[in-house]
Design a binder for these strands. Structure first.
Lengths: 153, 153
DNA sequence: GCAATATAAGTGTATATACACCTTAAGACA
DNA sequence: TGTCTTAAGGTGTATATACACTTATATTGC
């Protein structure tokens, strides 16, 4: 795959954005399928896993960690709160809405981890592990291009 | 970035799905910003660019090319049809809804190409071009893991 | 020719995404 | 202390995504 076509022009089929989105669709569907028995979507699993070691944490701070728009996170929290997996409470600074896992949330996350590991194994093994590491590193570099200075994993 | 943490366990922070989605968010926002003056989103630009050399084409066939769920494409076609950039017509097989660019659609795509090139250049140059090529190749390999046999760019 | 099957596409519903805008609370400072 | 600015968060609106289900048409086998 080259970013230029036969005549040296940029080729829209080699669009970095399109290729990222296509891959994100395929991989998300696969992770969602693995996680189906847990009742969590891949996005929700990642949200809970990112939240777990940081609780309690405010909306803006968690959104930054997830490289997600703050208002997107607000909306993504809704179904998890409705299902009782997370809880929101006012912080010392009453503007901050602190997010925490509930007991159910901790249990759901723990229960989901083996299913997530199966999904991660399926790509790690079939892509050959060094190549997955390289892909993750290159993805972080791509984020760095547009968000310089942030600590991209 | 390693897919395992210090104790050899899988690390959810190294989730392939999460990292793909984070990067897709960042890169999509950047492409959307570049394309803003054209009135097209990155997804819409890619849809038109993928459609252009294949018209007329049915919904299922175009969805496959975009590695997109068929019903997602149906929904994504709506705003483009409403704005008169594409047209849908019954094919010889009356089950097939053939999609084509309108004259306005062709013009909008042509007008948007320089803006898309600016976006693509910004990542190609700052990521160092060989690395972008490698990333695109690795992304195609990742799709191949979950969709074997498909001609991933 | 007709019943069974396969193919193409849309709808209902729910989550995911983010920009523009608004509200509220905290901090700064004359 | 009262105003100005900044920070945290939500809402309105629109697009993006996909599973389960449904409808309509074509094809196949007899």
């Amino acid at each position: 795959m080259s970013t230029r076509n036969e005549t040296g022009q940029r080729d829209p089929a080699a669009c970095a954005c399109l290729n990222l989105r296509k891959t994100a669709r395929v991989v998300t569907q696969a992770y969602d399928a693995h996680l189906r028995p847990t009742g969590l979507r891949a996005t929700q699993f990642s949200l809970l896993a990112t939240l777990a070691p940081r609780q309690p944490v405010g909306v803006t701070q968690l959104a930054e960690k997830l490289v997600m728009d703050r208002t997107t996170l607000t909306r993504n929290l809704r179904p998890l709160e409705k299902r009782g997996l997370i809880r929101m409470a006012a912080g010392a600074d009453s503007r901050v809405h602190e997010i925490s896992l509930t007991e159910e949330g901790r249990a759901a996350l723990q229960a989901a981890i083996p299913y997530w590991e199966n999904a991660q194994n399926s790509i790690a093994e079939r892509l050959a592990e060094p190549r997955l590491d390289r892909l993750l590193t290159d993805l972080a570099a791509a984020r760095e291009v547009f968000r310089p200075g942030y600590r991209h994993g």
